[in-house]
Write a protein that binds this DNA or RNA. Structure first.
Length: 708
DNA sequence: GACCTGCTGCGGGCTG
């Protein structure tokens, strides 16, 4: 059925390709896209043919003889655009349709060709679209006012993020210049909840989800090697080496520094054992060319084995070919992340694949097991709902004003008000934000018009303006004129120190603070580089599961003997609290020197409680990995205050108000939030860092058990 | 001891 619906050239393409059958998601997509005008979210795991599922029917349906770009493909990564370009171009040869890459590193001459004769398909990033709206408002209309389809790849990576709100706003602005609305097709990995995904099109009711839940059978193996120093246990590395030496492997050690440590040390072991030398590291601090070489090597090594030690740079769908095994060292912070990483292995249809989960301490073992169990139960964290994106609205207000080279105040208000990315924000709030922008000279009012103000010019004319996320400042690492990568400054960076980078060892020869350059030469021993960063939040379901594991006697067959005995040691430790009901009982211990309180709840709720304790001037320290607070107080004093803590939630606004006076740093997580009126900064902090309703529910339902 | 993502316009120098 599906095959017959496709146009003649597309059928020829399939025939030439020798595809004997289409995948389920492709059949469903072809039938629906070709026979309805709905928006669609195509959801299935990595490498299940989602790109073709979208493009086979779209290319069959669209008449490319019309003037203007007909199909716009939006991707979160340049690397993905380059990957997809060759696939889409191959398809388009059958139709005589032009395909143009448009991103910061794409060929300018080809971009100019497109502007002269707008047609066919364009592959672009959200930031490049933003830049076009800002600098070439006229071209946006010429190019994109006759669009038929927008395809958003890896849409899950945008959902619940600032970048997603930004992209939604851009799509809304594009929809505004059409005479007939375009259709949106989102491509997504398996996600927990589709409401937010559907909202991405601006028309939830008219957006349908096509879901292929088929998952590959995974054999999980847990291992435990306690880490006693700063470095990974050598036993762990040796055990790991013998597990992976004859395979194609991805290792996720959770940080850039550790990724380097793992790559360098495994390579050393392999040297001794006369094994292969294809050990690489892959993360944001490694130069793009070197990363591309690693990806190229992996994709093209049919016979040779390899091992890439990486961070989340290899979580998204960059094509690296077949991977036999995935190794996770210490726990992911979410089930979502675990699913993404597992999805990278065993790309051959019907084959089961191996997952090794190493832990270097008890709490990582417990969290890792909790994530794995939730994964097997089918739980996935629901995406965050960004209810109050005042900061992104502010950014878009500047973008629209700059793009129009001045705009009537009423038009600006109206454009922001009808933008479907900001439906939660009232017109009166938009007015307040615009007035504030005028007050701080980012905008200037001239009669009925607003233009970019004196202070605003610095902001909008900087290339940092096109993105809504912040980036750390880096020092370039250079060896004999070749860039190895770029790392953020840390006290460790000084002459004569040896560091790992790009799976090699380097000695720092000189540091140029002015030019932000580090010169290095090869060395034979050293230490992993240090990186500082903020962590990500753990969902309360993961913490619930951790407590549940501690409070039962199930013997999990994925655990080896060592892991089992660690878990039973923890169970023994927690048995003293005599937990009856894991939903409400939370362990409380009066130790020799301090009080300990285990919340077993989400990172956000912990952070909110931490703030409430500050407000009450109760000194405490939060260890979020253990989900535990420690206090150096008497039990009586703590309990007296604890009972009234939830009442303090109403004082949070005024407390945050005072905090913002003292310390602007607390809003610095938001690139554009720093320019908002204080009232909105407070709302933003409550929305993004804290969880007020969750904390209220938590505090009102739990019961302390143990030394009570 | 905690991740990742993107980037215009303009001018100068060089090549064919």
């Amino acid at each position: 059925m599906a095959f017959i619906l496709l146009s003649e050239p597309i059928r020829k393409y399939l025939y030439d390709k020798g595809w004997e059958q289409l995948r389920p998601i492709q059949i469903a997509a072809i039938e629906r896209i070709l026979t309805t005008d709905n928006n669609y979210i195509l959801s299935s795991r990595t490498a299940s043919g989602k790109t073709e599922a979208a493009f086979l029917p779209i290319l069959s349906k669209v008449n490319f003889n019309e003037i203007g770009v007909q199909v716009l493909y939006i991707s979160p990564l340049i690397a993905l655009i380059n990957d997809q370009f060759s696939r889409i171009e191959e398809l388009c040869k059958y139709l005589d349709v032009s395909v143009t890459k448009w991103h910061g590193e794409a060929n300018r001459t080809l971009k100019t060709h497109l502007v002269k004769k707008p047609s066919g398909i364009v592959l672009i990033t959200p930031e490049s679209l933003e830049a076009m709206f800002v600098n070439r408002t006229f071209y946006v209309k010429e190019l994109f006012s006759n669009l038929k389809y927008i395809v958003v790849d890896e849409i899950h990576s945008f959902i619940g993020t600032d970048r997603g709100v930004h992209l939604k706003s851009i799509i809304s602005r594009l929809q505004n210049i059409q005479s007939k609305p375009f259709i949106i097709v989102g491509l997504s990995a398996t996600i927990g909840d589709f409401i937010e995904a559907k909202c991405f099109t601006g028309n939830e009711l008219n957006t349908k989800v096509l879901l292929d839940r088929t998952i590959r059978p995974i054999n999980a193996h847990f291992r435990f090697f306690e880490q006693e120093s700063e470095e990974l246990p050598i036993d762990l590395l040796i055990d790991l080496y013998f597990e992976i030496k004859n395979d194609k492997v991805l290792i996720f050690p959770n940080s850039r520094g550790r990724a380097e440590e793992v790559a360098v040390k495994l390579k050393k072991i392999s040297e001794k054992e006369n094994g292969h030398q294809n050990f690489f590291s892959h993360h944001s601090s490694i130069d793009r060319e070197i990363r591309e070489y690693v990806e190229y090597f992996a994709k093209n090594s049919i016979r040779q084995n390899f091992c890439i030690s990486c961070t989340s740079t290899l979580e998204l769908g960059i094509d690296i070919g077949t991977v036999d095994e995935v190794v996770q060292i210490d726990s992911t912070n979410s089930v979502t992340s675990l699913i993404q990483r597992v999805g990278r292995s065993g790309r051959t249809e019907g084959e089961s694949s191996n997952l090794f989960l190493y832990a270097t301490d008890q709490w990582n073992l417990l969290q890792s097991l909790a994530c794995w169990l939730l994964y097997t139960e089918g739980f996935i964290e629901p995406p965050l709902r960004n209810q109050n994106p005042y900061d992104i609205l502010l950014h878009q207000a500047l973008s629209i004003t700059k793009g129009h080279s001045g705009i009537k105040l009423n038009d600006l208000r109206e454009q922001l008000n009808k933008n479907f990315s900001f439906t939660q924000i009232d017109l009166s709030e938009i007015d307040e934000i615009i007035s504030h922008l005028i007050k701080i000279d980012l905008l200037e009012k001239l009669g009925q018009e607003v233009i970019i103000g004196v202070e605003g010019e610095y902001i909008v004319n900087n290339h940092e303006f096109y993105s809504v996320f912040k980036t750390e400042e880096n020092f370039k690492v250079i060896n004999a004129g070749n860039t190895i990568g770029a790392i953020p400054f840390s006290p460790q960076i000084k002459e004569d120190v040896n560091i790992f980078l790009a799976a090699r060892i380097w000695k720092i020869i000189s540091v140029d603070f002015e030019a932000r350059k580090i010169d290095v030469i090869r060395a034979s021993d050293g230490k992993k580089p240090r990186f500082f960063g903020s962590g990500s939040a753990v969902h309360s379901r993961v913490r619930d599961k951790m407590l549940q594991i501690l409070n039962c006697d199930t013997v999990y067959d994925v655990l080896n003997q060592q892991c089992l005995s660690e878990i039973s040691r923890m169970r023994k430790d927690f048995a003293i609290y005599q937990i009856q009901d894991i939903k409400i009982d939370r362990p409380f211990l009066c130790a020799k020197k301090n009080l300990q309180f285990y919340t077993f709840t989400s990172t956000k709720i912990n952070q909110t409680i931490d703030l409430l304790l500050d407000l009450l001037e109760i000194e405490s320290s939060l260890d979020d990995k253990r989900s535990m607070f420690e206090f150096e107080l008497s039990r009586q004093y703590f309990l007296k205050n604890w009972n009234s803590i939830s009442k303090q939630l109403i004082n949070l606004d005024s407390y945050l108000d005072r905090l913002l006076d003292k310390n602007l740093h607390i809003i610095s997580f938001s690139k554009w939030g720093v320019y908002l009126p204080k009232k909105f900064q407070i709302k933003l902090i409550k929305d993004k860092i804290l969880d007020i309703p969750g904390t209220e529910l938590f505090l009102n339902s739990i019961r302390l058990v143990g030394d009570i």
